[in-house]
């Protein structure tokens, strides 16, 4: 494994956590830095492959142009829509105010 070399810094972990609106304890930062580094290190093994003659692909499956016809189908019942909402008002999802400044 990649004990000696970390593929992600603590600062990067804190940055990603901030983007995801997560508050991490120092302990968690240490733990997730190691875990994320392991994942990135594993993915990094791909760079050891000889890929000079392989053209970049956007998708692993050789498919293109998968479409749906523009035909209306029934939506789901409103009571089911807000069934899992922690809070709702007038059939709408109620969330804390989203403008924070």
């Amino acid at each position: 494994m990649t004990q000696d070399k970390s593929f992600i810094s603590k600062e990067q972990v804190l940055h990603v956590a901030a983007l995801a609106k997560l508050n991490l304890s120092d302990q968690e930062v240490t733990k997730f830095t190691a875990q994320l580094s392991d994942i990135l290190g594993y993915a990094n093994e791909l760079s050891e492959l000889e890929l000079k003659d392989v053209s970049p692909t956007a998708h692993p499956i050789e498919l293109e142009n998968v479409f749906r016809d523009d035909t209306v189908l029934k939506s789901i019942d409103n009571s089911k829509v807000i069934q899992n909402a922690p809070e709702s008002l007038n059939s709408q999802f109620k969330v804390p105010p989203i403008l924070d400044d």
Partner: peptide, 24 residues
């Protein structure tokens, strides 16, 4: 001005009751 949304078959329409044109 399509009949349905971009990724699903819910109706593309303005001015309906809230959360009536939605799906998973």
């Amino acid at each position: 001005k399509t009949a349905t949304k971009l990724w699903c078959s819910c109706k593309n329409s303005f001015g309906n009751e809230p959360n009536t044109l939605v799906c998973p």
